[in-house]
Amino acid sequence: MFAVIKTGGKQYVVKPGDRIRVEKLEGKPGDSVEIKDVLLVKQGEEVKVGDPFVSNAMVTAEIVEQGRAPKVIVFKKKPKKGYKRKKGHRQFITTLEIKEIKF
Rank of each mutant, 00 (worst) to 15 (best):
V49Q: 14
G50T: 12
G44P: 06
L25K: 03
E45V: 05
I93D: 08
P29C: 11
E100M: 00
G8R: 03
G44I: 06
G17Q: 02
I98Q: 11
P79F: 06
K36Y: 03
R21K: 15
P16M: 02
K15E: 14
E46A: 15
K84P: 07
F53H: 08
K71C: 10
E23F: 00
K10A: 11
V14Q: 04
E45T: 08
I98R: 12
E100C: 02
V33W: 04
E62C: 01
E65W: 00
R19M: 01
G30I: 06
F75A: 14
F2H: 03
E46T: 12
E23V: 02
V49I: 15
H89T: 07
S32V: 13
L25A: 12
I5R: 09
I98D: 12
P52W: 05
L39G: 12
V41A: 10
M58P: 05
V38H: 13
G27M: 03
K6A: 15
V14W: 05
K99A: 04
I101N: 03
K77M: 13
G50A: 14
G50S: 14
A57G: 02
I5M: 10
E97G: 02
R85Y: 07
V74P: 08
P52R: 13
I63H: 07
F75G: 11
G50L: 09
P16S: 04
V54Y: 05
K28D: 14
P79E: 15
Y12S: 01
V64P: 04
V41L: 11
K102R: 14
P16H: 00
S55R: 13
S55K: 15
A61E: 11
A3N: 07
K76R: 15
L25V: 05
A61R: 08
E26M: 11
G17L: 04
V41F: 05
K42I: 06
A69E: 11
A57Q: 03
K28T: 09
G17E: 02
A61F: 00
T60G: 09
K84C: 07
V74F: 10
A3G: 05
K15A: 01
K28C: 09
G67Q: 12
T7P: 10
M1N: 00
I35C: 01
K71A: 15
Q66A: 09
I35E: 02
F53G: 09
G88S: 11
P29G: 13
H89E: 07
H89G: 11
A69H: 07
K10P: 04
L40Q: 08
I98C: 11
P79Y: 09
K80P: 06
E62V: 01
S55Y: 00
V38E: 14
E65L: 06
M58H: 10
A3W: 05
K28S: 15
E97F: 01
K102Q: 10
A69Y: 01
